[in-house]
């Protein structure tokens, strides 16, 4: 809904669309030719440091398996790029894994944005006592990254209802149900090898909720009152006023979340054993089998490098394309 379509009272208070000005602070006007030269030299070496490894990966990805393993090594670009890409793509069934990664990444993006938005809405625009406790419950999860709770989280993914079962058993409710109806209560929801299992544990988001809360707190009271005067309920207000206003927020969050969703490694590694649900990042693991030896045969570094280029590409494209929102979002979520 555009502003013009909104009922009168609301549209009067909505802030005018912000004009996009490119704030560019000019460098100081100084005549320091040598210092400038040194600055460029340092920055270019920095770029080389960051791009150098990618060049080497690319060069390897263009070579044949003999070229990539020959001694003395050959670090120049050869002509077998597409062969290696297609070998990586087809021999490893990258297509379905790419689709899986895309499903997980978009599931994580959408899930996190929706969850962050509605949770923040529920604790900012309603007057109840649990506002701060809920916010802190969500916020404290920042201190519990997956890595420190992998084993039990895996157990939960094997049966997502086990916490409830345990509570019912412990409080005696299961026993009561069994005594009354003769039904043995056994709740089970296995999430291993499913998209739900891949996505659901990742969509809780302390940073996203925080970002949305900060944004919602800047919404003027008058806007809420105007919406109420127009007869809009909370959900209508959320959909027609807040969601459009938070578009920048969403773009910023979406970029960060896409990168983190696409790059998930440990979680899919744990809960996916079925090749049909494998994601690309995990597939990289098995390209050069044993880390401590070069394995039995000649390692196919060329194919492995082509594959890792393929995996790197989508998030890089997103970050570069969404640079402005991405930087802003990253900085405001981590503050």
């Amino acid at each position: 809904m555009t502003q013009a379509e909104l009922p009168l009272a609301t549209s009067e208070i909505l802030p005018a669309p912000r004009r996009r000005t490119r704030r560019r602070r000019p460098g100081l006007v100084e005549n320091t030719p040598w210092m400038n030269l040194a600055t460029h030299a340092i920055l270019i070496s920095g770029l080389l440091l960051l791009l150098g490894p990618i060049y080497l990966v690319f060069a390897a990805a263009t070579q044949t398996v003999q070229e990539v393993n020959q001694i003395p090594p050959n670090l120049s670009i050869s002509s077998h790029f597409w062969e290696n890409i297609s070998e990586a793509w087809f021999s490893r069934d990258f297509q379905s894994k790419f689709i899986n990664s895309a499903i997980v990444a978009s599931g994580v993006v959408i899930g996190k944005i929706v969850i962050a938005c509605i949770t923040a809405f529920g604790i900012v625009f309603f007057d109840h006592r649990l506002r701060m406790p809920i916010f802190w419950l969500v916020f404290i999860t920042l201190m519990l990254p997956l890595e420190v709770r992998i084993v039990p989280t895996y157990a939960v993914a094997a049966n997502a209802l086990s916490p409830f079962q345990a509570i019912l058993d412990w409080t005696g409710v299961s026993w009561l149900i069994n005594a009354v109806s003769g039904v043995e209560l056994a709740l089970e929801w296995n999430m291993l090898n499913t998209y739900t299992g891949l996505i659901m544990p990742l969509i809780a988001t302390a940073t996203g909720t925080f970002l949305y809360r900060q944004f919602f707190l800047t919404i003027p009271d008058e806007l809420v009152e105007a919406a109420k005067m127009d007869g809009a309920g909370p959900l209508r207000f959320l959909r027609d006023v807040l969601v459009p206003l938070s578009a920048t927020n969403m773009a910023a969050l979406a970029t960060i979340m896409f990168v983190s969703g696409w790059n998930q490694f440990l979680w899919p590694l744990l809960i996916i054993t079925d090749p049909a649900h494998e994601v690309v990042a995990v597939e990289l693991r098995s390209l050069i089998p044993n880390a401590n030896t070069t394995g039995g045969g000649i390692p196919k570094w060329n194919v492995a490098m082509a594959a890792s280029l393929l995996v790197m590409l989508p998030p890089i494209v997103v970050v570069v394309a969404m640079q402005r929102w991405f930087v802003r979002g990253l900085i405001s979520t981590e503050k």
Partner: peptide, 16 residues
């Protein structure tokens, strides 16, 4: 030029 490496997945960096 300095920002894009943020996007690269840890296993891809590891393999590279």
């Amino acid at each position: 030029g300095m920002i894009w490496p943020y996007a690269v997945a840890a296993p891809a960096i590891g393999l590279a």
